[in-house]
Design a protein around this nucleic acid. Structure first.
Lengths: 337, 337
DNA sequence: CTGAAAGCGCTAACAG
DNA sequence: CTGTTAGCGCTTTCAG
């Protein structure tokens, strides 16, 4: 049953041809007679011959594989990015190998190692939360394997990036709240040691100022990026002096945490308190009322990132400075405001 | 900048050692003196040497890569499966290459082709909806590459499978409704040309019978698997003579469609009508009331499938009949019943 | 203890 | 038109 893999030699043996002749025939080389080509090709089909890409890659010192490392595949955002990456990779004849770091820097490093060993053509990474230094990405660069960060990146590594326009997304969200007449707008900020947290907070602050609304430090609660963080952050907010009339949350999970807590306190959204998220997670549109949020287009982000990477792969010598692509956001207005 | 990749020969040249000696040193071969080993290893680290897996694989005729083909990566269920696969693959030293078929048989076949060419160690597939014949999986089997189907499979291909226990999941759901005192239980069935649809419907019917409840054909509506199908199916149900007091939907999207429609008609869940889904989609727990549903454990399914595949890979000669693993379901009781 | 030689499957330059 | 040869980077005998 388990037939050994068919090779050009096998084909040659059966046809009394040298295996190199077979190889040329399969590549439609002009040297070879139509006659021979036909017989080779038909035998190849009959035996289910598939050229060994490993040998080919070894010879050519090239490979048609992209590596992707994400914190967690089973995640709305990242799986959509991967979908986008696979889509353009497939279209350009590349395969995609997917690795998850589980937010663990060491595991990230190990993945970089095996991807390097496998001589992937390029690597896409969204770094683990715990990753501070990017030194484990150096091997890639040493081997001349191009690297593109998406969404989360390392400051200390010079590489292409694709990021969401966090700042403008935040201003859009806050602008909308102001338009709706809210004035006491709170911000459930993520942790500000990530660029995402910093930029969204900056957008919030600037947009309030731009509208002549004073910044009240009491109205900013620093938390994490999860639903639980949202719950806790909202409680903290309530424990302070003055009630907000609207909340801009750093992302949808945090907004959803706040949402749950608001409902639990029997407050009405948006009458008592309006709520805006960031990310347009699938379930945000299913809440009651559905959540106003900022669209991040992860699928598009994956496509853009893969595209950048492939450009690098196809122009290996270009000493172009690293570039940053910014994915435009779009405000999605729903019932929560 | 773009340094050529470092090889054993490079190391050898720098140390005045033959490259085979270097190779042995790196593999901690007893032949080699500690002295030499140390110098080799330290130079390897210094130069950022990473063994070329391609060459290694070519030599050994082995590869440490699993291929996964799913209809769409950007999908709750499949991305969770992939997550599970990657998890166990990683733990056993394997990489995972992910391909999406976009529910297109031809694209599925192309993926099979490149995976075959890349001599992946094994392949996991959930087949595209449009796939009827499985003949494009033959090349794999011809090359002796093991294949495991998960969730969706081809009847005409002899291969290992991992499937959800649809029948018992359905009986659990219906049993629960009966326990709660509902008697007029409707079923929004999917299309019954899939095993999923058939088995869940069979479970529904049998469980009613087992409880002495007569089957009323008016209470079964055949639809598809999407939210829209749920909406339409519920309307159909209402247009018929008698109102159900509970609904068992073939999956969560259909249940959610019904849910929306029920709310639109100003009926109360579960007072006027109870609702059970199947699949435990993320958003089901966020509905108000949250949806009672049957857990499918896609993450676990991924793990089990990868495990089966790796077992085949590690025992290539075992002529064991193909096996079927059934993932047990679990009823998750929430507010909708 | 270290080196030489062969070969994994393929391609490409060169001979016949 | 077809065959020979060499080599991609590595491991694995087998000699020294």
């Amino acid at each position: 049953m388990t037939h050994r893999q068919v090779t050009v030699k096998d084909l040659g043996r059966r046809l009394n041809l040298h295996f190199t002749t077979v190889s040329k025939a399969l590549h439609d080389h002009p040297d070879i007679s139509e006659q021979t080509k036909r017989s080779v090709i038909s035998l190849a089909e009959e035996l289910g011959y598939h050229p060994n890409s490993i040998a080919k890659n070894l010879k050519s010192q090239k490979t048609y594989t992209l590596g992707v490392i994400v914190p967690l595949i089973k995640n709305d955002f990242f799986s959509a990015v991967i979908s986008g990456v696979e889509e353009v990779a497939y279209g350009r004849g590349f395969n995609t190998v997917v690795c998850q770091s589980n937010e663990d820097t060491e595991r990230e490093a190990i993945h970089i190692g095996t991807l390097t060993s496998n001589r992937v053509a390029g690597v896409l990474v969204s770094v683990a939360k715990t990753t501070t230094s990017g030194s484990h990405f150096r091997p890639l660069q040493k081997q001349g394997i191009p690297l593109v960060f998406f969404d989360r990146f390392c400051e200390d590594i010079e590489a292409d990036k694709v990021v969401v326009d966090d700042y403008n997304g935040a201003t859009q969200a806050v602008h909308h709240l102001v338009q709706c007449g809210y004035r006491r707008i709170a911000h459930l900020a993520g942790s500000t040691n990530t660029s995402i947290g910093r930029e969204r907070c900056r957008g919030y602050v600037d947009e309030l100022k731009r509208n002549g609304i004073e910044i009240d430090p009491e109205m900013i609660v620093y938390s994490g990026f999860g639903e639980k963080d949202g719950i806790l952050a909202f409680r903290t907010l309530l424990s302070r002096d003055r009630m907000p009339d609207a909340i801009f949350a750093v992302n949808d999970p945090v907004a959803i945490g706040a949402y749950k807590e608001i409902k639990r306190k029997n407050l009405k959204i948006p009458q008592d308190i309006a709520l805006v998220g960031f990310g347009d997670n699938t379930l945000s549109s299913y809440l009651d009322p559905p959540l106003t949020t900022v669209e991040q287009s992860p699928y598009k982000m994956g496509k853009v990132a893969a595209d950048m990477l492939l450009r690098r792969i196809e122009n290996p010598e270009s000493e172009i400075e690293s570039e940053v692509e910014v994915i435009k956001t779009k405000l999605i207005i729903r019932g929560s405001t």
